[in-house]
């Protein structure tokens, strides 16, 4: 976005390198809030729109539309710093949208939001994505990422450790792991060759099967120990997955 110079590599948009002209078609939101604290909300949006080349009259209309869209219409004349953190974040997103960008780049749009604000932010972003504006955002809230994103890149210590759709990544990682619960037998362990216990709890045991071992054999093995309360393929959540790959 012109903020950092890449150490290596290039950034392209479509077929072209990212020039100023391209950058001006991107909606960007820095991680820490990037607005004038002592400027009125609407003035702020209009000003940024003008900086991005929007006509003054159009900028005014769009600011009004976005503010009512975000439920902030009655705060339009207030100074930014008098708004709650969640509302400031909404203004920030509105600022990223004001010039109708072709791409949204948001750095941690969910940080510091309460669950309700988080939900409404998620709805807004999904709306944009459905309207055909790709949204690229960074987050540490992996449950949210899992729910919202079509395509995910996990980065750990500056390296890409996994990439793809949430489901694809989880299924791939799941391999042949099974979660087995046997009634009355806490920390049950299979007595079957080619099995490896990953973790056990009072309720269930996660077992990894070696290649060629039939999950049905594991089920049969468990049934001999007691009544089965649980038997499923163990698909890790994104958080678990991240914890594993970053280990």
């Amino acid at each position: 976005m012109g903020v950092l110079t890449p150490d290596a590599g290039t950034v392209t948009w479509g077929d072209s390198t990212v020039t100023l002209d391209v950058r001006r078609r991107v909606g960007y939101m820095p991680e820490e809030r990037g607005l004038y604290p002592k400027m009125k909300v609407r003035d702020q949006l209009v000003y940024l729109a003008r900086v991005f080349g929007v006509e003054a009259a159009v900028a005014g209309e769009r600011a009004d539309a976005l503010l009512s869209d975000f439920g902030l219409a009655e705060r339009a004349g207030d100074l930014l710093h008098t708004l709650s953190l969640g509302n400031q974040q909404r203004v920030q997103v509105a600022a990223a949208l004001i010039h109708e960008p072709e791409l949204l780049v948001l750095d941690e749009p969910f940080s510091g939001l309460d669950p309700i604000a988080m939900d409404s932010m998620a709805t807004r972003l999904t709306e944009r994505a459905h309207a055909g504006v790709p949204v690229l955002f960074s987050s540490h809230q992996l449950e949210l990422v899992e729910r919202l994103c079509d395509d995910i890149v996990l980065i750990h210590e500056g390296r890409v450790v996994a990439a793809g759709s949430a489901q694809g990544m989880r299924a791939k990682r799941a391999g042949s792991r099974y979660r087995v619960g046997v009634d009355g037998v806490p920390h049950w362990r299979p007595t079957l060759a080619g099995t490896d216990v990953i973790s056990t709890t009072d309720e269930a045991t996660v077992v990894e099967l070696s290649e060629g071992v039939d999950p049905q054999e594991l089920l049969a093995n468990a049934q001999r120990a007691g009544a089965i309360t649980h038997f499923s393929r163990a698909v890790p959540s994104l958080s678990e997955l991240f914890a594993e790959v970053s280990r």
Binding site: M1, G2, R23, Y28, P30, G34, L35, Y36, V51, A95
Partner: peptide, 17 residues
């Protein structure tokens, strides 16, 4: 410094040199 501290400058440099 106000623009720096409030990070508005990051938004602005995305839009203009």
């Amino acid at each position: 410094v106000e623009e720096k501290q409030s990070r508005v400058v990051e938004l602005l440099v995305a839009a203009l040199p």
